[in-house]
């Protein structure tokens, strides 16, 4: 379906090097409409921070991007590839789970409660997906894993089990695990919300380091200071839509919408 692909490329051609493209996404849980037409574009190498009150749909948006949640309307593409669907003959065909899993290897996801595999050592946690999903040789995967552990400052914890680590260390392992697949984009779902206050810094430092090296990231968080320091774009969501977005200085210091002002006055 070459002509269709060209057609599709035209749609995204209005912006240079768009990595993540979210268009008119709707999502409901039963009668509850959580996303009501979300549009979002993230350029390669940029950090986008999503802010918003709880229940505003920011986590759900993140989960639709790697298809942990199906969208009911609209579409999402990453690096020009539709997520969860295949377009052919003027129709969208739902992908089988096998193909969705393949797409997810391009999308790193870091959970609020880490979700490390407790029965596997730190090294095994990092090696599992590259070996089973990307069919990399184990030795090569282990080398990559050790390099990544070194990068997040946990080279000496390769043989430890997750429960032997502090929350901050677990989250750093989880970030390394997401990086082990060499993803095109990293998604963070409130990565510091489950941590003790004194452990938040070490995790944010790792994310800042990734930002400096040009990793494309979307970070859902409540850390306004982090957004100000690291974000290229701040997106404010409320009631299942993007209320406003722009550079951190604009959105955080000079919000245009009443809802943004109300939210920021509560958290700042």
């Amino acid at each position: 379906m070459t002509d269709v692909t060209v057609d599709f490329d035209d749609v995204t051609a209005d912006l240079d090097d768009v990595m993540v493209d979210v268009r008119g996404v709707h999502k409901s849980f039963g009668p509850l409409e959580v996303l009501r037409g979300v549009d979002l574009r993230v350029r390669a190498g940029e950090v986008t921070v999503v802010l918003g009150p709880s229940g505003s749909g920011k986590s759900t948006l993140l989960r639709t991007i790697n298809h942990l949640e199906k969208v009911h309307r609209g579409w999402i593409s990453i690096d020009g590839e539709l997520i969860g669907y295949r377009r052919s003959g003027g129709k969208l065909h739902e992908l089988k789970e096998k193909d969705v899993l393949k797409q997810r290897t391009h999308i790193g996801f870091v959970f609020q409660n880490f979700n490390l595999f407790p029965h596997l050592t730190v090294l095994e946690n990092l090696v599992e997906a590259p070996v089973s999903a990307l069919r990399r040789p184990r030795k090569e995967a282990e080398e990559t894993a050790r390099r990544l552990l070194d990068r997040v400052g946990l080279a000496d914890k390769a043989g430890a089990y997750p429960r032997q680590l502090s929350g901050g260390q677990q989250q750093r392992v989880a970030i390394a695990r997401a990086l082990a697949l060499g993803p095109k984009v990293l998604l963070f779902d409130e990565p510091t919300s489950a941590l003790d206050p004194e452990l938040v810094g070490e995790v944010l430092d790792v994310i800042k380091d990734l930002a400096r090296t040009g990793t494309t990231m979307i970070v859902v968080t409540h850390e306004i200071g982090f957004a100000r320091e690291v974000a290229d774009t701040v997106v404010f969501m409320d009631g299942g839509v993007v209320v406003e977005q722009g550079p951190p200085a604009a959105v955080l210091d000079d919000p245009q919408h009443e809802r943004t002002r109300a939210f920021l006055s509560k958290v700042l």
Partner: peptide, 10 residues
């Protein structure tokens, strides 16, 4: 969810 997010085969 973590296993699915990492793309590990079913």
């Amino acid at each position: 969810e973590a296993a699915a997010a990492l793309g590990i085969p079913r």
